[in-house]
Design a protein around this nucleic acid. Sequence first.
DNA 1: CGCAGTCATGACAGCGCAGTCATACACCGG
DNA 2: CCGGTGTATGACTGCGCTGTCATGACTGCG
Lengths: 345, 345
Amino acid sequence: MTPVAGRGAGAAPRSVDVARLAGVSQKTVSRVMNDEPYVSEDVRRRVLAAAEELGYRSNNAARALASGRTRSIGVVTLGTALYGPASLLMGIERAVRDTGYALRVVNTMEGESAGIAGAVDSLLDQGVDGIVISEPIDEAGGAVLSARLDVPVLVLGAPPPFAAPHVVTAGIVSHQMARAATEHLLELGHTTVHHLAGPQRWYSARDRLEGWSAALAAHGRAEPAVVQGDWSAASGYAGGRELVADPEVTAVFAANDDMAIGLMRALAEAGRRVPEDVSVVGFDDTPVAAYVTPPLTTVRQPFDAMAQDGLKLLVHAIENPQSEPLPMADPPVELIVRASTAAPR
Amino acid sequence: MTPVAGRGAGAAPRSVDVARLAGVSQKTVSRVMNDEPYVSEDVRRRVLAAAEELGYRSNNAARALASGRTRSIGVVTLGTALYGPASLLMGIERAVRDTGYALRVVNTMEGESAGIAGAVDSLLDQGVDGIVISEPIDEAGGAVLSARLDVPVLVLGAPPPFAAPHVVTAGIVSHQMARAATEHLLELGHTTVHHLAGPQRWYSARDRLEGWSAALAAHGRAEPAVVQGDWSAASGYAGGRELVADPEVTAVFAANDDMAIGLMRALAEAGRRVPEDVSVVGFDDTPVAAYVTPPLTTVRQPFDAMAQDGLKLLVHAIENPQSEPLPMADPPVELIVRASTAAPR
DNA sequence: CGCAGTCATGACAGCGCAGTCATACACCGG
DNA sequence: CCGGTGTATGACTGCGCTGTCATGACTGCG
């Protein structure tokens, strides 16, 4: 009935089973599976054939227990489907997979009790070799990570080294991109540029605000009051209602495309034309940005490249403990100019 | 210097260390950590205190090895930041976390060699107790899953039971939602409704097409030729260019909001007004749908509820092997009517 | 008072791998 | 022909936990 002897037929084959079939020791099977040196071609082939025949799959838990490494990386994300964070997460997944690690994901909702520290803790409980914190925000009480953090951490999106005890690698900044967007408007001839900002608890929102501010300062322009949004189109619309009250406003840099779209709706309802009366720049180059009315000038972030670069650092830190962190190149800025920006009239 | 004796001070504490400190056996520590019965309150407190003091974290690999269960669930997603799939993924993460499992994620890019089967395989390699396939698409060669599949699988978005050997639970359908969207247009008085479809390799795209078709059939209307898109606003725009050529078109149901936005842009460029000349309905209720011009009538999917319901089934299948699959209620349809739809003139 | 039944705990084995060390053989140069 | 060096393999052990079974202590009841 059952071809397998001993332990129930349904039981998954182990390396000893493969070893028996191939006529070698269990250790040799382990060698073959891990591509270790000092295995003859003949034996390697026999082992692989035996493994194939039995449908052998090495047991990860056992490997992790014996080797002390889980070969997995955990990522902490803000549980939102916003285009930026979602794109970055996809990029991280790809990058993690490329490095041969597995990916574990934990979200942290804004307002959730445990916050980022709780999410990190849960990853540590699960056992990961490294952690990525994507799009961090300020938590109540500051960015205090777990005190028992004993794996490298990569923070994507935090400008200065994130406050953390163990190994920490800082990530990308959208500062320059925001600056480029603002300068585009200034160069078109606008006297100044207003800013529709993201929630300031987000590092990326602060980054963009600083980039905007730096551009104005570099050109010696006055810095108008910032209008606060929360990334949503709804908040962009609300911010837009404020801005339309001021006839001096001729150019607005929104911290993301969704808010820019809400803003443009508020402008349209107020009878202000884009770009004739007001120029608008967004951020992210969401898939719809090119197709709204008018098509939106925006900034594209190289999510995949950022994730790949960051992961390279993280994996380096994992596999070469106490070595110098690698330097990280700044990603390229890409400003996409469309019809929503023009010279002031 | 180092408070910890024996093994290097940096080594993570094990349950025996906790046991020693609490003056109990290692097994009792295990009992406390797993909330097993037959532990006195006094001992429980002492163990917890000792664990706290040492910063004890139970080793997952060892637990998985000893118990044969990993307490983790894997999810296969299409690596896209599209609003629907991304929202569903976030919902899945929340739902998985609520059940006490950990989440492992593998993407499968369209056109990637291994495809869904490869992703499932890699999850099985990692060791998961259950698998969620989110937003499945047809692969070359059909939906053939791994032959060595030995854990329950939940397929979110496949109408009929997905072709799989082991335990399989079918998920949600957007059929009725598509039908509701189409009927909304018919009830406004449109003679017929055109459809801007998603890529037909996606089950959800086929579902929506079928819902549209069913609505037309139920009202005895002719079924116009379907225009094919790929979910992107760009493809919606391209499809729109086709549709504007036909003056008979007065109502279009797009399979997602992005395509609807592209379509509206094409209509605008052709001088066709929305909704006066053409009514448009989207699908998803993306965050910007309410703020484009005109605000888009659309259908909202209860991603969180779908993920939660589905996970309930999956966890049930994991924890009660060979029991009947639980029945699954259909999620509520929510049609959001905005300014992009009106009666024909 | 004695025995069965509960409750609380510990001893011990073993999950399936990878690390360490020992061993066996082949080959090299002096 | 012998010791040294490199290659190929296996025996054995242990990673840190859970499962099983044994053992005591403490009930309750006839």
